[in-house]
Design a protein around this nucleic acid. Structure first.
Length: 554
RNA sequence: GCGGCUAUAGUUCAGCGGCAGAACGCCUGACUGUGGCUCAGGAUGUCGUGGGUUCGAUCCCCACUAGCCGCCCCA
C-alpha cells in the first residue's frame, strides 16, 4: 500500500521554516497596524458566482484554475417537498412520510400531519423524497411492502427502517432529471417531479484570491454605511489549480490589504494609492527584502481599457503574423497579453504598439499624475511600465507590481491595483478601492535566498535544558521546568534515562544552558548550570535560577 | 493544459545489467555525574509506483505519480 502524501501542489511547512513565516506575518501585522489597518478574515470558500462576477468569467483563474464543487447539502429538497406537497395534499389528500429529520421538519412546517401508514392499510402509499435512488432506498421499500403484506405495523424511527412500514403501491419520488443509480426499480413506482430543484444547488469554490471576498463582506455588512474608509488586511491561504512550480503552489498564501469605501470618504483619492504603495515599500524594507522594483502603470477606466483593447487589436492585425506564435494567438484572444511577451525578436514591434497612457480619459490621467507626484514627494522609487497590465478584470486606473530578481519566471512578489467598479459588479454600492496581494510563499523564498547569501541565522534555542540524573529525578525535573517556564523562559526537558553525556549532546543542540538536576542538587537546592557559549559551570541556588538563566549569555 | 529535466539512507548526492555506496546526521562504546575534538564499532533503504525486456533490472523501455525548469497564466 502506498503511503499517503500531501496532494500535488500542497506542502507542509515545518520548523524551523515556520519561524520565518511567523516573522513575516508579525512584521506585516505591525506595519498594517501603524497604517491603521484592521484584520478581516473571510471564509476560505465562497459562492462560485462571487469569483465569476468579481474576478471575471473569462480570466484563466475562473475559467480553468478554480477548485469548484457542488455542495450536496444544499440540494433544495425543501423546494421539492413544497412542490410535491402542494400537489398531493391539495389534489389527492394523502400521506407523506420520510425518515430524514430535515424533511420531517420541513413537512411539518408546511402544516401536514404525519400519519404513519394508517390511512389506507390496504393501499398505503409511501413517498420518499430523495435526490438519489440508491440500492438502500429500494431495499427499504421492498422490505416495507413485505411488512405491510403481513399487516405488521412497525414503530417509527428516524432511520432507514422507516421504509419498512409501507407496502404495495410504493412510490419513490425523485426530482426530474436526476440520475438513478444502478438499481432494479421494477417493484417500485418511480415518479418524477418536474421543477427547478437543481437550480438551487449551490456551487462553491475555494477562494483563488481574497479581494472579491473582502468586497463581498463590505457589501454584506454594509460597511459603506459607516461613511468611513475601510482599511482591511488579511493573511491566509488561497487556492488555484495551476501546474505547481517553485513559488507557485495550489495552496498558496497571500498577505493583502484593501482600502475601500464610499467616494465621500476619500476612497477615490490618488493619495490612497500613493499611501498604499508607500506602505508596501516600508513593509518590504522592514522585512529586509533588498533590491525590489516597483512597476507602476494606469489602465484607466473600464471604458478606457475597452477602447485601448480595440486600438491594440487594430494595430496588431496587420503585423501579428510577424510575431511569435504565442503573440499571434494573443493578438486575437487577449491583446493586452501581447505586452507581456518576452521573445526578444518581438520587442521592437511591441514598442511601436499604442500605449494605454494615450487612451486614458482626462480624469484618469490626472489621477495617475497625482499618484506619481505623491510618490515622488515621499521618495518612493518606482518604474513606469506602460506594459504592466493586470490579469484580473476588476482593475482600473492604478496598477502595480513589486518584482524581485532571483524568483525565476515567477518574479512578482506582489501585485495590486485600483478596482473602482468591483463593488457595483457584485451588486453593491459605489465603493472605489485599491488593494494588493503579496505572495507570501515568494516572500519566504526571497528571504531564504538572501539569508543564504549572508550568514545563516542562528537556530532558535531554548534558554535552558534540564537534565535529570536518573529516572527518579524526572518528576522533580518537570516541577523545575514548570517553575522556570512560568517565568517566561523557554525550557527543554531531558529524560532521566539519558546518560549525562547524552543529555549534554541533546542540550547542546537545543538550548543555551544545561541545568543538571541530580540527587545532590535536589537535596542542597543548589543547581549546576553550564553555559554552552562560555563553557563556564556555575552553582546557582534554585531561587536565583530563573534570574540567572534570563541573563543573556555573552 | 503543453514541453524538458529529475526521483537511490533522516539529509545532500555518487553509482552500476549480477551482494546497495559516500559524506553529513543518527545509535553504541572508549568515558559510572560533564557535551563539542578524537578513535573504534553499528543501523540505515520496497533504489518514487506499476508494468515490460532479460537467466537476472536500482540501472534499459513504457505508463503513472511527484518535484524542479520553461510555456500558458498569475501573487
Amino acid at each position: 500500500m502506498s503511503t499517503l502524501k500531501a496532494v500535488r501542489g500542497t506542502r507542509d511547512l515545518l520548523p524551523p521554516e515556520t519561524a520565518l513565516w511567523n516573522r513575516i506575518e508579525a512584521v506585516a501585522r505591525a506595519v498594517f497596524a501603524r497604517y491603521n489597518f484592521g484584520e478581516i478574515r473571510t471564509p476560505i470558500f465562497e459562492d462560485t458566482s462571487l469569483f465569476a462576477r468579481g474576478v471575471g468569467e473569462e480570466t484563466d483563474i475562473v475559467s480553468k484554475e478554480m477548485y469548484t464543487w457542488e455542495d450536496r447539502e444544499r440540494f433544495d429538497i425543501q423546494s421539492l417537498i413544497t412542490t410535491w406537497t402542494r400537489i398531493q395534499v391539495g389534489e389527492r389528500g394523502f400521506v407523506i412520510e420520510s425518515g430524514a429529520l430535515d424533511v420531517l421538519q420541513a413537512i411539518e412546517k408546511f402544516g401536514v400531519k404525519l400519519i404513519l401508514g394508517r390511512r389506507n392499510p390496504e393501499k398505503p402509499e409511501f413517498v420518499a423524497f430523495t435526490n438519489k435512488v440508491t440500492q438502500d432506498v429500494v431495499d427499504g421499500l421492498l422490505e416495507a411492502k413485505e411488512a405491510l403484506r403481513t399487516r405488521e405495523i412497525l414503530p417509527y424511527s428516524a432511520n432507514a427502517d422507516y421504509m419498512r412500514r409501507f407496502g404495495p403501491g410504493l412510490r419513490l419520488v425523485i426530482p426530474a432529471g436526476l440520475p438513478r443509480e444502478e438499481v432494479q426499480l421494477d417493484e417500485v413506482v418511480v415518479e418524477e417531479v418536474a421543477g427547478q430543484f437543481s437550480k438551487s444547488v449551490q456551487s462553491l469554490t475555494l477562494r483563488p484570491e481574497n479581494t472579491a471576498g473582502v468586497v463581498r463582506a463590505y457589501i454584506e455588512h454594509k460597511l459603506g454605511e459607516t461613511g468611513q474608509l475601510q482599511k482591511l488586511y488579511y493573511i491566509g491561504p488561497q487556492f488555484r489549480r495551476e501546474r505547481p512550480q517553485k513559488g507557485r503552489y495550489r495552496q498558496f498564501f497571500q498577505i493583502g490589504a484593501e482600502v475601500i469605501g464610499p467616494p465621500s470618504a476619500g476612497s477615490e483619492s490618488p493619495l490612497r494609492d500613493a499611501e498604499v504603495l508607500e506602505m508596501l515599500a516600508t513593509l518590504l524594507d522592514e522585512l529586509g527584502i533588498t533590491g525590489w522594483t516597483l512597476h507602476l502603470n494606469s489602465v484607466g477606466s473600464s471604458a478606457d481599457r475597452a477602447r485601448y483593447n480595440e486600438a491594440l487589436r487594430a494595430a496588431l492585425e496587420p503585423i501579428a503574423h510577424t510575431m511569435c506564435a504565442d503573440c499571434q494567438r494573443r493578438a486575437i484572444t487577449n491583446p493586452l497579453r501581447v505586452l507581456d511577451c518576452k521573445v526578444p525578436e518581438d520587442q521592437p514591434i511591441i514598442e511601436t504598439l499604442p500605449r494605454i497612457a494615450d487612451h486614458l480619459d482626462p480624469e484618469s490621467q490626472q489621477h495617475f499624475a497625482a499618484v506619481t507626484a505623491a510618490l515622488d514627494a515621499a521618495g518612493v522609487p518606482y518604474t513606469l511600465n506602460h506594459r504592466l497590465v493586470r490579469g484580473l478584470d476588476y482593475y482600473t486606473r492604478t496598477t502595480f507590481e513589486f518584482t524581485h530578481g532571483g524568483l525565476g519566471a515567477q518574479n512578482a512578489l506582489l501585485g495590486g491595483g485600483r478596482y473602482d467598479g468591483l463593488s457595483e459588479a457584485l451588486g453593491g454600492p459605489r465603493a472605489p478601492g485599491i488593494g494588493f496581494a503579496i505572495g507570501e510563499d515568494r516572500l519566504v523564498l526571497t528571504l531564504q535566498a538572501q539569508e543564504l547569501n549572508q550568514k545563516s541565522a542562528p537556530p532558535q534555542m531554548a534558554d535552558a535544558f534540564i537534565a535529570p540524573l536518573g529516572e527518579a529525578m524526572n518528576a522533580p525535573a518537570l516541577s523545575l521546568a514548570r517553575e522556570l517556564r512560568h517565568t517566561g523562559l523557554a525550557v527543554e526537558l531531558g529524560d532521566g534515562s539519558f546518560r549525562l553525556k547524552k543529555s549534554f549532546e541533546a542540550a547542546d543542540k537545543t538550548a543555551r544552558c544545561i541545568v543538571i538536576l541530580g540527587e545532590d542538587e535536589l537535596q542542597s537546592g543548589i543547581l549546576t548550570v553550564k553555559d554552552f557559549s562560555t563553557g563556564i559551570q556555575t552553582k546557582v541556588p534554585r531561587a536565583e535560577l530563573a534570574a540567572f538563566l534570563a541573563e543573556p549569555s555573552k
